[in-house]
């Protein structure tokens, strides 16, 4: 059942694009679904959304969520409610590199506030925003589980630890260069699952 009128929220705009995984990814996806018992394919939803977000444009559009629902044989709304719950799924367009700075207790003790302030100054955006050139998005996130090497941030789920403003500058420089060469920010989910 797909009634366009149900979805009024500005984030939920169905663009009507045809989306599909590449054949290699699709094979991996079907293997992943088989890890769960018969009738419980919905369990594969979180891994699939990770892969979809990564391979189909960096965020979960309604078209992508509908596609994932069709792969698992579940209602689209079952995907929407999950995608809106977890902080690693983005509903909005994101930059090529998503910089997520940990803000919680131990990182704050070690100076994450200064790191975030530095990023805001250098990138000239606030958390939740993307640079106009579409290269960087900045986010504040909760504990990344790396408190012994604080302050910490993740760029496209790669960890960068014991940060200083100088290290951040060097990283941003490298990432800008990567962006020119069209390199991804890290290894992919499909590579991780064997």
């Amino acid at each position: 059942m797909q009634n366009d009128n149900i979805i009024q929220h500005p984030q939920f705009i169905r663009e009507g694009k045809q989306v599909a995984f590449a054949p290699g990814t699709l094979k991996k996806v079907h293997e992943l679904i088989l890890r769960y018992p018969e009738g419980q394919q919905k369990s594969a939803l979180l891994p699939l959304l990770h892969i979809a977000q990564e391979e189909l444009g960096g965020h979960l559009s309604v078209d992508i969520m509908d596609y994932v629902a069709s792969l698992l044989g579940i209602q689209p709304v079952e995907v929407y409610e999950v995608a809106t719950f977890y902080s690693m799924f983005y509903l909005d367009n994101m930059g090529k590199y998503v910089i997520e700075v940990c803000r919680t207790g131990p990182c704050a003790l070690a100076g994450s506030e200064q790191i975030l302030a530095h990023l805001r100054d250098v990138l000239e955006i606030k958390p939740g925003e993307t640079t106009p050139d579409g290269i960087f998005s900045l986010r504040e996130v909760e504990c990344l589980g790396s408190c012994g090497t604080a302050p910490v941030m993740q760029v496209n789920t790669e960890y960068y630890e014991k940060l200083t403003p100088g290290k951040v500058d060097r990283l941003l420089e490298d990432l800008r260069e990567y962006a020119n060469k069209n390199k991804p920010g890290g290894s992919t989910w499909v590579e991780k699952f064997c």
Partner: peptide
């Protein structure tokens, strides 16, 4: 495993 530990997924799967 928490999703942020993506790099560990590869280690465990291996």
């Amino acid at each position: 495993i928490r999703g942020e530990f993506k790099y560990l997924v590869g280690i465990l799967e291996t």
